[in-house]
Structures are given as structure tokens and as C-alpha cells.
């Protein structure tokens, strides 16, 4: 039985109908056509589908959409500031942190949550924060560089 549900995604309210067995991942990608959120296993084993739920990184493949009603959902589509890239996005682009780009949305959001609670993380802290996101292309190092560079930009913005 489909039921009506209201989701707040990237600050916008979306009303849709969904069955209780749909995960947030399925509703984002299929109901709302927000295909920026990726999936690599749907079992919570890779991190590709990470989104922010009330600012905290979660796996959209392991959360039922019906349980997310009323919460603030942030996806990669909500990162940019209008036409301008978010500093994390710009740094990822400049540092080669996105090779195939498939893990990128999940990592960007996880990194955003990190920098919001810790604006000046050490390299080890960045490694730890991103240790739930697998990347098969980069070997992570350019990603670490990019997060570091973005953190600097964000700190300067805060001044």
C-alpha cells in the first residue's frame, strides 16, 4: 500500500507516495529523480549512498523513507551554493579527489558533516571520518588533500 510522505530534501519539501518497504535511497533516486546519491551494495558495506539526516551522515540504503519524514535530508544536489560550487566540491575537483566520481557524493557529505563539527581536523581525523566510505580509484590521498584544502577555505570564510 502506497502512503503519502513528505520529505524535506535540501531544504525543499517533496510530497510523494511510497510503500513502507522503500529505503530513502530508492525514494531519492526513483521517486524524486535525485540520482546524485549512488549505491554500491545496498547493504551498508560501501558508503556510496551516504546522505545527511539532520546533519549526521547516514546510509540512505539502510533507512526507511517513511522514518525520515520531517527530518532535514541533505544530498549532493544540495551542496552547491546556487551556481557556485561548495568549497568541498571545488577542492575535490581541483585535487583530483573525484576520479570515477562514484564514491564522491557520499564522501562529500560525510566530509561536510566532519567539517561542521570539527573545522580543523588532523589528517588522521579525516581518515577516520571517511573510513566508512570506500573508494576504489584514488587511494584516498587526494581526497584527504581536498578535505584539508576545503577546511582551510571554510575557516577563512568563517573569519
Amino acid at each position: 500500500m502506497k502512503q503519502p510522505i513528505s520529505l524535506i530534501v535540501n531544504g525543499e519539501r517533496y510530497d510523494t507516495l511510497c510503500q513502507p518497504n522503500l529505503t530513502l535511497l530508492e525514494v531519492l533516486r526513483e521517486n524524486l529523480q535525485l540520482t546524485g546519491t549512488k549505491h554500491g551494495c545496498e547493504l551498508g558495506e560501501c558508503g556510496a549512498c551516504a546522505v545527511l539526516l539532520d546533519g549526521e551522515p547516514v546510509l540512505s540504503c539502510l533507512v526507511l523513507a517513511m522514518e525520515c519524514a520531517g527530518q532535514q535530508i541533505t544530498t549532493v544536489e544540495g551542496l552547491a551554493r546556487g551556481a557556485e560550487l561548495h568549497p568541498l566540491q571545488a577542492a575535490f575537483a581541483d585535487h583530483g579527489a573525484a576520479q570515477c566520481g562514484y564514491c564522491t557524493p557520499g564522501i562529500l557529505l560525510t566530509a561536510k558533516a566532519l567539517l561542521e563539527r570539527n573545522p580543523c581536523p588532523s589528517r588522521s581525523e579525516v581518515r577516520e571520518a571517511l573510513s566508512g566510505n570506500l573508494c576504489r580509484c584514488t587511494g584516498y590521498l587526494q581526497i584527504l588533500d581536498a578535505v584539508d584544502a576545503a577546511a582551510q577555505v571554510l575557516r577563512e570564510e568563517q573569519r
Binding site: 551498508g44 558508503g47 539526516l53 551522515p57 547516514v58 560525510t110 566508512g132 566510505n133
Partner: peptide
Amino acid sequence: IATVHIRGT
């Protein structure tokens, strides 16, 4: 336990 994302849920 698992990953930071999973611990958030």
C-alpha cells in the same frame, strides 16, 4: 562498530 554512518543510525 561498523562505520560512522551506521553508528549514526
